[in-house]
Simulated assay, not measured.
Amino acid sequence: MLNIATLGPKDTFSDLATKQYIQAIQAKEPLQTTHIQYYATLSQTFEAIGKHCQLGVLPIENLSEGYVQVVLDQLLDTKLSVISELLLPIQFSFVGFCEQISELTDLYVQFVAHGQCSEFINGLEGVQIHMTQSNIESLVLAQKKGKTAGAIIPQHALSQASDAKLIDNDVTNYRNNQTRFLVLSETAQARIQGKEYKTTLVVNNKQDCPGVLGNIVSAFALQKVNLTSIMSRPTRSQIGNYHFFIDIDGHQEDAHISAALTEIQAQYDVTVVGSYIKAINTNGNK
Rank of each mutant, 00 (worst) to 15 (best):
L2M: 02
L2I: 04
A5I: 11
L7M: 03
P9G: 04
K10P: 10
D11A: 06
S14I: 02
L16T: 03
A17D: 08
A17I: 12
A17L: 11
T18Y: 07
Q20R: 15
Q23I: 08
A24D: 04
K28W: 01
P30E: 05
L31Y: 09
L31C: 00
L31K: 11
L31Q: 10
T33W: 06
T34W: 11
H35V: 01
Q37I: 05
Q37R: 04
Y39H: 11
A40R: 12
A40T: 14
L42D: 02
S43K: 15
Q44K: 09
F46T: 00
A48E: 06
P59S: 12
P59W: 03
I60H: 02
N62K: 08
L63Y: 13
V70N: 15
L72Y: 09
S81Q: 11
S81Y: 15
I83Q: 02
S84Q: 05
L88K: 03
P89Q: 13
Q91P: 02
S93P: 07
G96W: 07
F97W: 09
Q100S: 07
Q100R: 10
I101H: 04
I101L: 15
T105N: 09
T105V: 03
L107V: 11
Y108Q: 08
A113S: 12
A113Y: 01
H114N: 06
F120T: 01
G123C: 12
G123K: 10
L124F: 08
E125L: 13
I129Y: 09
H130L: 04
I136L: 12
E137W: 03
E137R: 07
L139C: 00
L139N: 00
A142G: 03
Q143R: 03
K144E: 13
T148I: 07
A149C: 07
G150E: 08
I152V: 15
S159C: 04
S159W: 10
Q160H: 12
A161F: 11
A164M: 04
L166D: 05
I167F: 04
V171G: 06
Q178A: 08
R180N: 06
R180M: 14
R180K: 14
R180P: 01
L182D: 01
T187N: 13
A188H: 04
Q189C: 01
A190W: 03
G194S: 10
K195D: 10
L201Y: 10
N205I: 10
K206P: 00
K206Y: 12
Q207P: 00
D208P: 00
C209Y: 15
P210N: 06
A219W: 08
L222T: 14
Q223P: 01
K224V: 11
K224Y: 06
V225N: 00
N226R: 08
T228Q: 05
T228K: 05
S229M: 09
P234Q: 04
P234H: 05
I239Q: 15
G240C: 15
N241D: 14
H243M: 11
F244Q: 03
F245A: 03
I246M: 12
I246G: 07
G250R: 02
Q252T: 14
D254K: 11
A255Q: 10
A255E: 09
A255H: 07
T262C: 09
I264W: 13
Y268A: 11
V272E: 10
V273P: 01
I277C: 03
N283G: 00
